[in-house]
Simulated scan of single mutants.
Amino acid sequence: MSIGELLAGREGLRIEDPRQTSVSVHAYLRDLIISGAIPPGTQLKQAELARVLAVSRTPLREAFRMLQEEGLVSAEPNQRSVVLGLDAEALDSLYAARITLESLGARLTAGRMTREEVRSAAAAHKEMDRTYRAGDYASWTVAHRRFHRLLVGRSGAPVLRTISSYAEQSERYVRIDQLTNTQDFEARQREHQAIFDAVRHGDGKAAVVEMARHLSGSARRVVEAHAPGRGTPFVDAALDLLLCDCSDAASDSG
């Protein structure tokens, strides 16, 4: 199926600032790849995309470069790229980094959420439940992203930017997890609630444990579904490090 056929009927590219065309093109294509609208294996030809999106080749080349850096597409000869499928090692590495940093973010945020942030996180959690049951994955993704961001909101700008980048890169895997493990939704919602409770009540150690276990579970489920028996050594190492640190800290304080 051509890229034109894949994008037929979908909302078109919007460019608010012509000086940021490459950024807009990158964000547009990135969302389509992560959502699965442009599936793995799809060949992206710059000439065809330039025509379909009505943009010049220069910003398109820059958008392709950013997608390649994120591991979403491969670099091919003749100004072509291919949307990459699930790479178990890349997922393992990405989630190990995300687990480590987002658990830190949860600990730094524990006990520091404002009342408004607590209300917003509770509303996002409720919205996640509603949209998932309605089959509205796009809206679920927005609520899920907002929920996680609120729970690490006191991390400081540099850390928060990196956490956000890791979380966005993980979204394609989160979607795979949702689609292949539909029976686990209630359990995942309970995990979200446990993280939220730990952060808002100021229990930094519990926030680390709950966040690390939640994210590692997602990674392990996706890898096992697509590469049975491979395991997640990077994720396991990150989890061991964090849980060991929490246990040691608890022992020291006792």
Rank of each mutant, 00 (worst) to 15 (best):
G229I: 02
S251T: 13
R149K: 01
L151Y: 06
S120T: 14
E186Y: 09
Q79A: 11
D184Y: 14
E191N: 04
Q20D: 11
R130T: 15
R154F: 00
Y166F: 12
G36K: 06
S81F: 00
G204S: 04
K126I: 11
G231R: 05
T114M: 00
Y137W: 11
V83H: 02
P77V: 06
A47Y: 12
A37F: 07
G41F: 10
R175H: 13
R154Y: 00
A207T: 11
V209W: 04
A106Y: 07
L150K: 04
A157K: 09
Y137G: 02
P18Y: 10
T232W: 04
E11D: 12
E127G: 06
V82C: 01
V152C: 04
D92T: 08
Y166G: 00
G105Y: 09
L94Y: 09
D197A: 06
G229M: 00
W140H: 14
D240C: 00
A90G: 09
R80I: 08
R175Y: 06
T114S: 15
A219W: 02
S253W: 14
H26A: 14
D184I: 07
Q43I: 15
A212V: 03
Q79Y: 13
A110Q: 06
G135Q: 03
H214A: 01
S74R: 10
L108E: 09
L7M: 04
A194I: 04
S165D: 06
A47S: 13
E62S: 10
Q20T: 13
V152K: 05
D240M: 06
Q193K: 14
A90R: 15
I176H: 12
G254Q: 08
M66N: 14
A138F: 10
G12Y: 14
A157E: 15
Y132G: 05
S164E: 15
R221W: 02
T141K: 10
R65E: 07
L29V: 12
I34M: 13
N181G: 12
C244W: 11
Y95M: 15
S74E: 03
H201F: 01
E210N: 08
D31F: 09
S35Y: 11
A121I: 05
M1H: 11
E224C: 00
E127L: 05
V209G: 01
A96N: 10
A88Y: 07
A123G: 09
I163F: 00
A198K: 05
P158Q: 11
S155C: 05
G41E: 08
Q183K: 11
V208L: 02
A75N: 12
G71N: 00
E102M: 04
E70W: 00
Q79G: 05
E116T: 15
S164N: 14
E11N: 13
E5L: 01
R14Y: 14
A219D: 01
I38F: 08
A219K: 03
S103M: 06
P77G: 10
F147T: 06
T109D: 05
L101A: 08
L44G: 10
R149D: 03
G217F: 03
L242H: 14
L60R: 04
Y173E: 03
A37H: 14
T42K: 12
D177H: 11
D31M: 07
R146L: 03
G12L: 04
Y137C: 02
H192K: 09
Q68I: 12
